[in-house]
Simulated assay, not measured.
Amino acid sequence: MKALISIDYTYDFVATDGKLTTGQAGQEIEAALVAVTKEFIEQQDFVVFAIDGHDPNDQYHPENRLFPPHNLLGTEGRALYGQLAPLYQANQDKENVYWLDKRHYSAFCGTDLDLRLRERKITQLYLTGVCTDICVLHTAVDAYNLGYEVFIVKDAVASFDPVGHQWALQHFKNTLGATMV
């Protein structure tokens, strides 16, 4: 069984004026990301929208020292970007579509993701979204450590750091044994 994890494809991470944007690199993957998400939904595979959510009053979160405030709870910055938003809205009530609030880079850290996947006997994870070298990477590492087979949808991941993006793609393949699709 397989699942798609769509990571942080939100206004703050993708829009030109987003708070921590990948800009053009993130915008260029929209068609591929939407197409693969639609395919997984239509095939009744499990689709997880793993979305960063930060409390602006959380003085203890380590990201506050590293990045400007982004994906703040209750703001438009946390909304899905572009055509992914209406795709999610049209399918959000389906049993195979799941919104996952996350607080850290990895979609597994402090969430029920592993339980939800194991309940469905899912062993293969396809990852899409941003940032390749941050949230996608940390999710992939945790997936690998938990024994999942990892697939990276290469045309549906992006970063604001081109060097980090390329490094992460190599790391997925050479260190985690991920399959690039």
Rank of each mutant, 00 (worst) to 15 (best):
V47T: 15
K173G: 00
A15M: 07
T123A: 10
C135I: 00
D8A: 01
D112R: 11
D55M: 08
V48S: 05
L127V: 08
M180A: 12
K19G: 01
D17L: 13
G82E: 10
T111E: 02
I152L: 14
F151W: 09
D58S: 10
Q89V: 00
V130H: 07
Y144P: 01
F172Q: 06
E76P: 07
G77N: 08
L176K: 02
S6W: 06
I5E: 08
Y148D: 04
V48Y: 01
Y148R: 12
D8R: 07
P68N: 11
I5Y: 02
E28T: 06
Y81R: 10
A50D: 00
I41S: 12
T123V: 10
L146N: 09
V34I: 15
E149A: 14
A35L: 10
T128R: 09
K121C: 03
F108E: 01
K173M: 08
L115H: 12
D93Y: 02
L146R: 15
G26C: 14
Y81T: 08
D142N: 04
H138R: 10
A3K: 04
R118W: 10
M1Q: 01
L127W: 09
L125E: 04
L4D: 06
Q124N: 07
T22P: 07
G26L: 12
E30F: 00
Y148V: 05
V97G: 06
Q44L: 13
R116P: 00
A107R: 00
T123E: 15
Y144Q: 10
T75W: 09
M180V: 11
L176G: 05
E119I: 09
P56K: 13
Q27S: 13
L72N: 08
F172L: 04
H104I: 00
A79W: 08
H70N: 11
P56S: 12
A143I: 02
D142F: 01
K94M: 03
A50W: 08
M180D: 05
I5F: 04
E39P: 01
H61D: 12
H104S: 06
Q89M: 02
G18C: 09
F108I: 02
L20I: 04
E28F: 00
L33W: 03
K121P: 00
Y11K: 13
V14N: 07
F40C: 02
V34M: 08
D101T: 14
R65Y: 05
E30S: 07
D142L: 03
V153C: 14
C135D: 03
G82S: 11
